[in-house]
Write a protein that binds this DNA or RNA. Structure first.
Lengths: 194, 194
DNA sequence: CCTACCGATCGGTAGG
DNA sequence: CCTACCGATCGGTAGG
């Protein structure tokens, strides 16, 4: 018999991950230290890292958790829309709301992780790159369905606007930025580019 | 008499800063540790930090150095152009070339620093924010001179495209990204939005 | 999931 | 600009 039940251990693991994602969104996946996490959760370091095995495994688990949140908040609300332009517009709307809101305390986790890791190598960087590529592929697929001549261009530009919005919100607290992003995304999705 | 001349000390300081900017572009301003810098420059830690006083002062000096490089590489080549649309187009061209090239080994220093610090507080974060705001103001001023109705929108969108390009180059090694960014910037600068 | 510990590295300083 | 050092924290492990 384990000293704590499987269900209890699972709950602990989830609470660690939830805190890990918040910390990493503010201070980066490298700023996510085991000791800090243990202190904030009032656990021992061994108790924290025991659920993952290593800091790198914890970083990857946090990344996967953040990607799942992104999917739930940005993709899911749009998944019910008709493929193509209606779905792209719903994605754009949910994306801006996500970046404007406080899903993560430090802004878009994926943007932060990609900037932090794009100059490094190893499993974490590879996972960050694969996650971003997957999302750009989803966008390009919808743009293709919407009849755009160059769907990857649409994906590139929507992603760029999202990054720009995240910067203005997080760095400047710019209240006009979400509307600017909406206008920019609408222009990217204007059918005359098809 | 100092043991080394003022000119020699100045040269040492410059070599430290040059390396610091490269390291920070790859691993962030927080990944820039005094011990690592000392090791790579074959100096003592005291010798490195003595030129700046503290890690924070070193980080700010590296940021200022990077901003000076950005100005030289992106602004200077365009400064000779006629204000307004011609100058904006020259900036866009130089900006894409900068992001495509290897001015910094880890890509755009300012983008990396803004993502790293946008969730923190203190002097470094404030300096990063002020530097970005200054650049957006420059862009908006030129857009106003070019007759755009909403010059801040133009600045927002150009900056977004630059961030998107930096991500695609650094994270994916995407060779098609510079052309995509050029196309996106051209569309932002298309006179029909004036 | 805890205590107690490991070697390594962190930023920084004293003194020369 | 160096050596020698400080306390703090890093990731991680042994043993329970």
């Amino acid at each position: 018999m384990p000293r704590r039940s499987v269900a209890e251990a699972q709950k602990t693991r989830e609470s660690i991950l939830s805190r890990a994602v918040d910390v990493a969104s503010l201070d980066g996946l490298e700023g996510l230290t085991i000791g800090r996490l243990a202190g904030e959760l009032e656990m021992s370091k061994a108790g924290v890292i025991g659920h993952f095995g290593s800091k790198e495994a914890l970083q990857i688990a946090a990344l996967e958790e953040a990607a799942a949140v992104f999917t739930r908040v940005v993709w899911e609300p749009a998944a019910g829309e008709e493929p193509g332009l209606p779905r792209l517009r719903a994605i754009a709307e949910a994306w801006v709301a996500y970046l404007q809101g406080d899903v993560f305390p430090g802004g878009c986790f994926l943007t932060a992780a990609s900037c932090e890791w794009d100059g490094r190598s190893g499993p974490v960087r590879d996972r960050v790159a694969a996650t971003m590529d997957l999302w750009l592929d989803v966008l390009a697929r919808e743009a293709r369905g919407a009849g755009f001549e160059d769907p990857q261009q649409v994906a590139f530009e929507l992603n760029a606007v999202a990054m720009g919005l995240n910067q203005r919100v997080q760095l400047h607290g710019d209240a006009s930025a979400p509307d600017r992003a909406r206008r920019a995304m609408e222009r990217v999705l204007r059918p005359d580019a098809r």
